[in-house]
Each structure stands twice: as structure tokens, then as C-alpha cells.
């Protein structure tokens, strides 16, 4: 097996995997999508929400914000608390609440992108008999994030794009049957910013290795 990196960006990588079977490439792809863990908001304690969004909608929007995850620092039992407090302006108008306003209990955990809009808070002004009142909107909540996997919910999926293309080599064109086991695949992986993309590919491969070792262990135990 040979690996050649063609393109490497901050959140995306393109590489050629040669001398592997398609089923191996597909297993790696599926591991990247569904098995690599990352942090995502799982529960929201809403203290106040007078915005236009329902509590459930607001919770889902928060859940889909990618959070920077250091895979070596967290276990499945760990929880990170993020608080958010925002209010619409004093006069008529609106404030957009962005992901950067989430205050985390762990300094290492923050939104991967700070400009993800969460909710728009609107202030409306009215005057009755010379008395001016401003109706303001407010949100105050605590969000609890935990490690999860893409197979549970898409919010724990660390990749946005993850696919491969089979590249037929010279040998395959001449003798397609003999060279069926020696294919090259071009992988295109794009992370959502929560886990560095190179770490993500390595982690997926490590998870595959762990699973294979478990099968071998189980089989040898049954044999003896």
C-alpha cells in the first residue's frame, strides 16, 4: 500500500491510496464518517428564551455548531458546559448572536468557526399615549457537550465531505481481472473544523485496526 498526498489545506486533504481493495477504502471512508468521535452539544438547559425560535430549534442549531475537540483529552464520560446569554438592543433593531458568544467551561473547547449565526434577537418599539416601550428578546442557556459518533447522530460527524474515486491504472486497463485487487483510490476528505483533518484520517485507521484486533482476539479465544 502506498499513500501520496496530493493536496493539503487547513480543513481538507486529498490523497491517493494505491494497492488497496475498494472494500478497504470504503471501510476507511465509513470509519471517518461514523466512528471518529467529536464533541457536540447534546443537552440544553434553557433558562430563558423569548426569541422567535422554539427551544427545540435553538437546541438543534447549537448542536450543529462544530466544537474544537482534542481527542486525546476527552473520554466518553466527560462533559463540557457552554453558556450563552444575549439580549436584543435597547432601541428598535436587532442583534445577531454568533457562535463566538458561547462561553466554555474548558478553554480548549470552543466553536471551530466564530461566525456561525445562532439566533436573531429583535427589539420592537411602540408608543401608546406618549409612553414609549421597548419589547426585547433574550436568551439565557447552558449547553452540555459530550463526545459522540456519527453513527448516533449527524451532529457528531467530523467530516462534511468524505468520498473516494477509483483510479484505473495502466495495469488495470490491460488485464482488468488480474489487477482487480490492485487499485488506486483518490480520497477527498473535508473536515468540519472540530478535529484536524490529518488526525481524523489517522484516528479512522486506528479505529479500523482496533476492530480487526478485536476480531482476531475473539477468534483465537474461541479456538483455544
Amino acid at each position: 500500500m502506498e499513500i501520496e498526498i496530493i493536496e493539503r489545506g487547513k480543513n481538507e486533504v486529498k490523497f491517493v491510496l494505491s494497492g488497496v481493495k475498494t472494500r478497504f477504502a470504503n471501510a476507511l471512508r465509513r470509519a471517518m464518517i461514523a466512528e471518529v468521535p467529536k464533541l457536540a452539544i447534546d443537552e440544553v438547559n434553557i433558562h430563558e428564551n423569548t426569541s422567535l425560535l422554539y427551544d427545540e430549534q435553538l437546541a438543534l442549531r447549537l448542536a450543529l455548531i462544530p466544537l474544537k475537540t482534542d481527542l486525546s483529552a476527552f473520554s466518553d464520560e466527560d462533559r463540557v458546559s457552554l453558556t450563552l446569554k444575549a439580549e436584543s438592543p435597547e432601541r428598535a433593531g436587532y442583534t445577531m448572536v454568533y457562535s463566538k458568544e458561547l462561553i466554555s467551561s474548558d478553554p480548549g473547547v470552543e466553536a471551530a468557526f466564530e461566525n456561525i449565526p445562532i439566533v436573531k434577537l429583535i427589539s420592537t418599539e411602540r408608543e401608546i399615549d406618549g409612553i414609549r416601550t421597548v419589547a426585547k428578546q433574550k436568551i439565557a442557556l447552558e449547553a452540555i457537550a459530550r463526545l459522540g459518533r456519527g453513527k448516533e447522530h449527524a451532529k457528531w460527524q467530523p467530516v462534511t465531505t468524505c468520498g473516494y474515486k477509483i483510479v484505473p491504472n495502466e495495469e488495470a486497463r490491460d488485464e482488468p481481472l488480474r489487477s482487480a485487487n490492485k487499485k488506486s483510490v483518490t480520497f477527498a476528505v473535508e473536515g468540519d473544523g472540530s478535529v484536524p483533518v490529518d488526525e481524523l484520517v489517522i484516528e479512522a485507521a486506528r479505529i479500523m485496526q482496533e476492530k480487526c484486533e478485536m476480531v482476531v482476539e475473539e477468534l483465537t479465544r474461541n479456538k483455544s
Binding site: D42, E43, V44, N45, I46, D55, A59, L62
Partner: peptide, 10 residues
């Protein structure tokens, strides 16, 4: 005082 509402984020 507002009662805290717990919502599952999914």
C-alpha cells in the same frame, strides 16, 4: 423565577 427547561439537542 423561570423553571429551567431541559431540551435534548437533536
Amino acid at each position: 423565577e423561570v423553571v429551567v427547561k431541559k431540551v435534548k439537542a437533536e
